[in-house]
Simulated assay, not measured.
Amino acid sequence: MALMKTIGIGDLAGRTGLSVSAIRYYESAGLLNSERNAAGQRRFVRSDIRRLAFVQIAQQLGFTIEQIREQLAALPAKRTPNKKDWSNISRNFRKELDDRIQRMIRLRDNLDGCIGCGCLSLRACALLNPDDKAGKGGAGPRYLLGDSSEYKET
């Protein structure tokens, strides 16, 4: 990292709106790297501004630090990421976002009846799970998560 092309942590904080402590945390979490100058100050490449913007957006979308780190690991370490690099990450996140959207739509579409009756025992309720028959599919509200309703009583 050439020092002339780098910025200090205070400048990086000013450009991203993040606190210095948040930037240190993201660095310790492996989301970005710094080098130290002769005085021991952290120096970051300017492309870290965009990298941290991505981190903020990804967190707002509900991605974990680990998921974000995995995606950022695909970016080049020694050059500024280009449009193709960011497009690849976008494609990777799109599937997860599409899956979440579908789960939210199912929840929205099936929740009305449940909230209306409140008892969870109606045979027509999408949440009905007598004798934990849906438990074979795993934990949680299996029908709202998209499991088939083959275990439901009719």
Rank of each mutant, 00 (worst) to 15 (best):
F54S: 11
A53N: 05
Q67V: 03
I57S: 07
P76T: 06
I68E: 00
Q56I: 01
F93C: 11
Q56W: 00
N92M: 08
E66Q: 07
R91T: 02
F63I: 09
N82F: 07
I49T: 11
K83M: 09
S87K: 05
I89G: 15
I49V: 15
R43F: 06
A73Q: 12
I57M: 12
W86C: 08
R100C: 07
Q41C: 08
V55E: 03
L52I: 09
A73L: 13
L52W: 07
F54T: 11
L61W: 06
L61H: 06
L72W: 02
F54H: 12
R91D: 00
Q67P: 03
N92C: 08
P81S: 12
D48C: 14
N92L: 13
K78L: 07
A74M: 12
A58K: 09
L75N: 07
K78A: 09
L72R: 02
K84C: 05
Q71V: 05
L97F: 05
K78I: 11
Q59D: 05
S87F: 10
S87T: 00
R51T: 04
T64F: 01
R94G: 04
Q60E: 10
P76S: 12
A53E: 11
D48Q: 12
K78F: 09
R100N: 09
L97T: 15
R94W: 03
Q56M: 11
K78D: 15
P81V: 08
R42Q: 08
A39I: 10
S47M: 04
A58C: 11
E96C: 02
L61Y: 03
N82L: 12
R69M: 03
P81E: 13
K95M: 01
L97Q: 08
D99P: 00
S87H: 12
R42H: 13
A77V: 14
D98M: 09
G40D: 02
S90E: 14
S87N: 14
L52T: 04
F54D: 04
E66T: 15
S47A: 14
P81T: 05
F63H: 10
T64Q: 07
V45Q: 06
F63K: 14
R50A: 08
S47N: 04
Q67F: 01
V55R: 00
D98Q: 13
V55Y: 02
E96A: 10
R50F: 06
N82Y: 05
R94I: 08
T80Q: 08
